[in-house]
Design a binder for these strands. Sequence first.
DNA 1: TAGATTGTTAATCGATTAACAATC
DNA 2: TAGATTGTTAATCGATTAACAATC
Lengths: 204, 204
Amino acid sequence: MNEISEATIHRLSVYLRFLQRIHVSGIQSISSVELAHRLNVKSSQIRKDLSYFGDFGQKGVGYNVEMLIQSLESILNLKQKIAVCLVGAGHLGQALCNYNLYQNDNIVIEAVFDSNKDKIGMKINDKCVQSINELHNTVRKEKIKMGIICVPHTSAQEVADLLIMSGVHHILNFAPTTLKVPEHVVVREMDFTAELHSLAFFLR
Amino acid sequence: MNEISEATIHRLSVYLRFLQRIHVSGIQSISSVELAHRLNVKSSQIRKDLSYFGDFGQKGVGYNVEMLIQSLESILNLKQKIAVCLVGAGHLGQALCNYNLYQNDNIVIEAVFDSNKDKIGMKINDKCVQSINELHNTVRKEKIKMGIICVPHTSAQEVADLLIMSGVHHILNFAPTTLKVPEHVVVREMDFTAELHSLAFFLR
DNA sequence: TAGATTGTTAATCGATTAACAATC
DNA sequence: TAGATTGTTAATCGATTAACAATC
């Protein structure tokens, strides 16, 4: 089997989101051409992405929306609850906590940490902000699998090291800095600044 | 000349950020090998990325940090002020407004819009939240070139259309939805959910 | 001069796309 | 059966990397 690319996985998530929405609005079947048209990709791209994981369509007919949603959720590991922690309860961290409310999936922020004494004990979206010193214990107790870093860039590496030491090997990094991590750790960078710079470049 | 890829531009921004930091700490020269090591890329990647735009290094010596910063800022169009507007003054929008304070570049949020009457008139980081009805006029008056969308996914397309109609053709979209835009419009998606799903996939 | 490092070429690698046989 | 659409192959396209001559 060929390696599954990050780009493919990213698109599967986009497909899933769209399918969930049309499912709610009552659409029961869709073709790769129609899906491609709505999501600005090529239909062959969609069929290829799906083909890495199985046969989900029916020739001459298309895909059953409900069934494809189930399959994608299963592929993406979204059938079981995934406990996540968030480090850094500043503006962005608080926004992300609240944002999560809108999601209809099983990825749940179970703990929020900060190093600032003024923030500790504060309630955000029903979660009490804990001291970063609690991180190691809470991660174990709550079986936390993923970490979201929303601290200033000056402490992001330190936080990443702490997460990894505590057994969290899947990290979403909002801090504007490049993290150094061991090979087995998976990091995704949400690089707001780089995207703005890229837009600036294309202004001409 | 070959097409410059989006990936290259993204990396230039990452290089720039790192160089700015080491410049502050007094480092005056760096080689592509050292830079590559710190930023988890290959040194030949860095040299190739730069080669699209000119010769910035000195053989046998490396790159002058100050000079390379100037060159990258110029390439990325960051020498002049770029006026940006933000649509959607919810938690995320507010966080981004404040976040911007930390940036040392010329990309400045000049206006904030919302459709919610309770939000209009509110002050965020010294900017008064304006009604979305003002968008068209303010964009012209303030010469706004880029838009950041932070509204719920249900109104994101509508906001994108309004921005484009008002002359804003460079959009950073934080709403979890795929926008349909004309070919000449540049959109970057900050897809928080897709990144989380991608991490979920790699949990195994 | 010897050592270091660039800029660039050519090779490699991987991802996207078109095309079509299979089949509902 | 005729029309539609999948799953998959092979071709294309583009991006990354290794290697090295040039040169500081």
